[in-house]
Each structure stands twice: as structure tokens, then as C-alpha cells.
Nucleic acid binder design. Structure first.
Length: 296
DNA sequence: CACTTGACCTGTCCGC
DNA sequence: TGCGGACAGGTCAAGT
């Protein structure tokens, strides 16, 4: 599921609810999801949240400083439920009503539950890690060793950072001269955080056929691709991310970017620009969508 | 080296 | 209604 905009959406939601809360207990229902000694986290307080690529990080401080890394892969969800006080009806703190949340938590895809208390120890709240397909993972690292993490250390530049310029994009992509543009965009070593949805969307905005090889791109096209990447990611964050099937934000609500997407999941529908049919093709085993008339 | 495929899992949808 | 196959936002290892 989540690509950069979805993880960013979750991060912004959780930031409001979680910072300052203390971990009371952690229940792991699927051991492979979270292979760590969770006891060291009990009693620790949430300091801050960050995101790197598609990874959400929760920094906590207890006897030692730890960072909890979350990768949601295809079907992961992180849903927060606050309570006004123990025993009373559940109510979301710092969010909207959870009208999009179909199931009561926990449900059958709940793999891990974090239980929190506030400083007064009078109220409890819960963070549910749900993951139907069990591809997602949670890892525990010392905060001082986050940089060494084998997943994080191989990531390319953050596309929404100041350091990311069109020249950086060009340099990164040119390491993969013969690769199709869309396949290269999805490689996390090239740029961090772009997945199947935004790779197709960025190519459409840039008017570039996703099958083009990197070495055929002109500087003008690298600039357009740069704009396409930023625009699709920023627009999606504005709409709360993309929900095809599983994605919900930390309050259990869907995202609405796909209602405005140019090509993703729009096979045989009219192009929003030229009204010709959008086409679906397969690249590297994944679906790509394009408008054959707008993209060359 | 430059790609593609299968595996990891569970579930849904579509055609027969 | 059942059954098989394709497909689903990601990543990794193994193939060609």
C-alpha cells in the first residue's frame, strides 16, 4: 500500500496523538511482524515521529533511546484510538470521527497492538498495526544506530526535500541508462518513496511514455519529470493519500487522491486531458497506466 | 550487468 | 454456488 504520501499522512495524524504518551504494553499476535524484545519499550515515552521514504519512525525515550521503524508494505495500517478515560466509550483524540473505519479494532488482520497511557495514567489509548497480507514489518533499533539500518541506508534522496533538484533527479536516473523510466522511478535507491501509483502519475504529468529508456530523456524532460514527481506527491498529500483497497490514515479514514489521479487505475477511462482511452501495460511485473496520445 | 520473475501472504473479483 | 486465475499500494533473492 502506502507510498510516500500515505506514510506522510499517517505520520502527521499520529504526531498529534502520540507525542508525550507512554507505552504501557505491546501485544504481538504475529511474531514475524515484530521480531524484537518489546519489553525494553515498556514505560518509554514518545518523543517525536519522522518519515524516511515509506518508513515511519517513532522515537521513544526510556531507559535508553529507541526508534521503532514501521514498513506497511502492501496492506499495512496504523490506526490510533484514544479513550477519554478507562472504561468510557472510545473516542478519537485529536482527529475526526472514524466513519470510514469499517471494523472495530482489533480485527482479524491486527498483528500488533501498542497500549499507551498519558502522564496521569488515567487514560489509555491504542495504536493498532493491521496488515492483511503480513508483508509489513516493525523493527526496533537504538536511535543512535538508525543510520546503520540496512533498509534505510540504501535509500535515495527524499523527493520533497530542498536538496532534491532536477539535476539530482537526472544524476540519479542516469545510473540506470537502459532502464524504462517508470521502473527506475520505483527503485528506492534512485529516489525514495515513489511506488506504483506516483511513478505512473509522474510520467503522465511529464508527458513521457513510461517505457522510454532513461538515456533517451532530454534535459527538458528531466525537468518535467521532476515537476511531475513533486506535483503528484504533493497533490496526494493534500487529498490524504490514495485508497485503492486498504489504506486509511491514523484515524481510520480513506484518502481521496485517486478521485483526481490522471492515469492510475483508470484503464479504459477517458484521459482527463485529451479524452482518449487510458491504457494499462505491465512493466517489471506491475501495472503501469498511460495515455498513449499524451505521453511519448 | 540489465532487467524479469517468483516468493512472501491474504483476500477479492471476474469469467466460466 | 463453486472453482480457477488474475490481481492488489512493496521488497528481496534468484533467475536469464
Amino acid at each position: 500500500m502506502p507510498e510516500l504520501p500515505e506514510v506522510e499522512t499517517i505520520k502527521r495524524g499520529l504526531q498529534q496523538s502520540l507525542v508525550g504518551l507512554k507505552i504501557r504494553s505491546i501485544e504481538v499476535f504475529n511474531p514475524k511482524t515484530f521480531e524484537a524484545d518489546t519489553n525494553v519499550l515498556v514505560g518509554a515515552t514518545v518523543k517525536r515521529l519522522c518519515r524516511r521514504a515509506k518508513v515511519l519512525m517513532i522515537e521513544v525515550e526510556g531507559d535508553a533511546e529507541y526508534t521503532i521503524l514501521f514498513h506497511l508494505k502492501m496492506s499495512g495500517q496504523l490506526i490510533f484510538q484514544g479513550q477519554t478515560s478507562r472504561g468510557q466509550d472510545q473516542k478519537v483524540v485529536g482527529g475526526h470521527p472514524t466513519k470510514d473505519m469499517l471494523d472495530q479494532m482489533p480485527n482479524k488482520s491486527t498483528r500488533v497492538i501498542f497500549e499507551f497511557t498519558d502522564s496521569s495514567h488515567k487514560t489509555c489509548s491504542y495504536l493498532y498495526f493491521n496488515d492483511q497480507r503480513k508483508f509489513g514489518w516493525i523493527k526496533l533499533v537504538k536511535t543512535s544506530e538508525v543510520e546503520k539500518n540496512s533498509f534505510l541506508k540504501n535509500l535515495g534522496p527524499e523527493p520533497l526535500s530542498r536538496e532534491f533538484t532536477w539535476q539530482v533527479l537526472k544524476t540519479q536516473l542516469l545510473k540506470y541508462k537502459t532502464w524504462p523510466v517508470k521502473v527506475a522511478l520505483m527503485d528506492q535507491i534512485v529516489i525514495a518513496g515513489i511506488g506504483n501509483i506516483y511513478a505512473s502519475e509522474a510520467c503522465f504529468i511529464a508527458k513521457i511514455d513510461p517505457r522510454r529508456k532513461i538515456l533517451t530523456l532530454t534535459d527538458t524532460e528531466f525537468k518535467k519529470l521532476y515537476k511531475g514527481i513533486k506535483e503528484s506527491l504533493e497533490t496526494s498529500i493534500k487529498y490524504g493519500g490514495s485508497t485503492r483497497t486498504h489504506f486509511v490514515n491514523s484515524a481510520g479514514q480513506k484518502g481521496y487522491f485517486l478521485d483526481f489521479a490522471f492515469v492510475y487505475d483508470r484503464e479504459n477511462q477517458g484521459c482527463r486531458v485529451c479524452h482518449q482511452m487510458i491504457k494499462r501495460i505491465t512493466q517489471a511485473g506491475r501495472s503501469s497506466y498511460l495515455c498513449p496520445y499524451c505521453q511519448h
